[in-house]
Design a protein around this nucleic acid. Sequence first.
DNA 1: CTTGCCCTTGACGTCAACGTCAGGTTCTAG
DNA 2: CTAGAACCTGACGTTGACGTCAAGGGCAAG
Lengths: 136, 136
Amino acid sequence: MRIGEVADRAGVSTRALRYYEEQGLIAADRTGSGQRTYPESAVERVQLIQRFFTAGLPSRTVRQLLPCVDTGHGSPEAFAMMAAERDRITAAMADLAAARDALDRLIDIAHHPTPEHCPALREPAWAPYDAAVTGA
Amino acid sequence: MRIGEVADRAGVSTRALRYYEEQGLIAADRTGSGQRTYPESAVERVQLIQRFFTAGLPSRTVRQLLPCVDTGHGSPEAFAMMAAERDRITAAMADLAAARDALDRLIDIAHHPTPEHCPALREPAWAPYDAAVTGA
DNA sequence: CTTGCCCTTGACGTCAACGTCAGGTTCTAG
DNA sequence: CTAGAACCTGACGTTGACGTCAAGGGCAAG
């Protein structure tokens, strides 16, 4: 498969694929004339990379991760990193949930025919998170 | 309150506060000599802004959102935007969950004393998402 | 008055994952 | 053989939320 087909099937641009190669995330064979050639598995690999990028992992981290995908085992540092990223993702999900709750509250408040300028806005319904947890 | 105290209490830099003002997210009174003065409520407001930023909302969107926080009601466009952002956040949470699952699987696979180079890696356990849903 | 910390504006730097353009080569269909 | 698609490398542009440095003004303590 050449780069265009991989791009189409994986839903990314060819520029992205060349960037991935530049970052050491995918390898490509070359034809005699220098054109890249990918195996079928490249499509899935690209989609996995995309999934990690979407989750906020930087390319440097993904680069350390992918060998584990290939070999099926990882160094202790790799484990630590994976665990750390897992925790980071979990925390990010909590942050998203908090923001969505704030939005929901805002939608709810603004949607109700507010009687006398809604006192609920005075309650720090979105603020006490850090104050309560951090306890600073 | 002057800018430094707000920054400390909200857990952001003074640069960030000036940036927020520049983007029309917070207003500040000025003393005769030009120094910014904030009310107590600024701390909560900044924390709310941070929460939205963390959730991936751009400053432009937050700027459209905050008047609804202040007035307690919003235009139909504001409603549409809030709903859209809510959906985007929900989708982002799903993406995070998918990436975390992939990581968990990777951790699980790599942690087990893999017998013969783990065939589970050959199952496209992380890929079929788009393929199955998009149906392309 | 001076030391020193906090404040001001202005402007350039950063980082990541690409987008985009330029200028040239290669493959493919007719 | 020739047009045109697809590919190549190289390099600069983009975006957002700030960081950081420069050069100066303001203000309470001693």
